[in-house]
Design a protein around this nucleic acid. Structure first.
Lengths: 209, 209
DNA sequence: CTATGATATGAAGGATTGTTCAGTTTGAGG
DNA sequence: CCTCAAACTGAACAATCCTTCATATCATAG
């Protein structure tokens, strides 16, 4: 089962010539910059076009409406994030469960804190959307990757890998997000990350068989 | 240190006569109903007034603008939630740490899943706001209550209660929210709750001294 | 060089909606 | 019953902004 974007949110057409991909990139970049700077409430199509060095009409050749633009930007971001996690999972295939957990926490944490302003801006923009498909698609990709990795652990085997995996990813992703929302950073955030790792490892011990 | 609402978001005045409190209640109720039904994007001041059986002008006597209304609704909700958690903390004062964790998870989980549509609607509406004060005030209240409770555990004493506590609440609250966003419910959600409890207890064991 | 489709333009239309305010109604105290 | 402040009304104003489309420019293949 794969989750596709609602028809109404899909792009109108794909760029074919080089300059078209360039303007599309510019539009994406402009959107993120404006989201970071002024938030979604002040994101207008005209401003996006202006900052992208294009005109509104151009934007409307690629997206049927504003929502589709925001959708595309988030999709882009989540795709990149999922790819990073999949990459980590490939890299840690066959290692110990404890190493795996640490690797996933680190990857996710780093991805989210690299550009905190962008992370925050996108978190805030995605709620404006019919984002179910977006979230489910991301969850499915990461679940598949992490489950496969966890099943390959060299030191453990779990009676119910799927449940253990779902628990771990839900906890890790949720914790990072919550820490983020509380505005934690610096030493407090670092400490939390350490504790989260301890917690996950303790869970692995408890689930050993 | 206490977090006050930004001046711009505070109500204009408080009701004095009985009918005034009645209309205020109606406005609150109408706001939530509309948020649930159509989402924040379609929430207009006119519609709120209409459904509340009042006029727009009335609404503007109590709130300087739309944002202040949404702010007030969320504040109301978070206050009630914090109160429930504080109550649980008082009730479990002096019990074992494992019992405490279970109680907090249950309280929070129940509060969030009682009316999932309301929870979701408010999650979505709060990002429109300058919500820092809101979130920090809530975090402070719950942190204080849970820390105090945890420090009273009959079977444990922690070298760093504050850190352990912060970890636990961040993990629990974050996990519930994430589970919520993934649309999990029914048996999968139940299973996750059980696993979360196992995880937290394993963490407590690991932190024992 | 020319033809054709891809790409870009941006003023104008149209619709929505937050907010005000001058005037009316209601309630409570004297 | 009278008075005054509290509470309420809703048409009108003002501002914003999404989206379209007729037109223009550009790139490429033949």
């Amino acid at each position: 089962m794969t989750y596709a974007a609602p028809a109404a949110l899909k792009p109108r057409k794909r760029p074919q010539q080089r300059r078209a991909t360039a303007t599309l990139d510019a539009i994406f970049e402009a959107t993120i910059q404006l989201l970071v700077k002024d938030g979604i409430a002040r994101l207008t199509t005209t401003r996006v076009a202006e900052r992208a060095g294009a005109s509104v009409g151009t934007m409307y050749q690629y997206f049927p409406h504003k929502q589709a633009l925001i959708y595309a930007v988030n999709e882009h971001y989540l795709d990149a994030l999922a790819e990073r996690i999949e990459s980590t999972c490939r890299e840690y295939h066959g290692r110990t469960a404890a190493e795996m957990v640490e690797a996933v926490i680190d990857t996710y944490w780093r991805a989210k804190t690299e550009r905190p302003d962008v992370t925050r801006a996108l978190y805030r923009s995605v709620v404006e959307l019919d984002n179910e498909a977006l979230i489910l698609a991301f969850a499915d990709r990461t679940d598949a990757a992490t489950t496969e990795m966890l099943a390959s652990a060299s030191d453990r085997s779990f009676a119910d890998v799927v449940s253990v995996n779902r628990t771990l990813v839900t906890v890790v992703f949720g914790t990072v997000r919550n820490s983020f929302e509380r505005g934690q950073s610096g030493e407090i955030a670092e400490e939390l990350r350490r504790q989260l790792l301890i917690m996950c490892r303790a869970y692995l011990e408890a689930k050993m068989n």
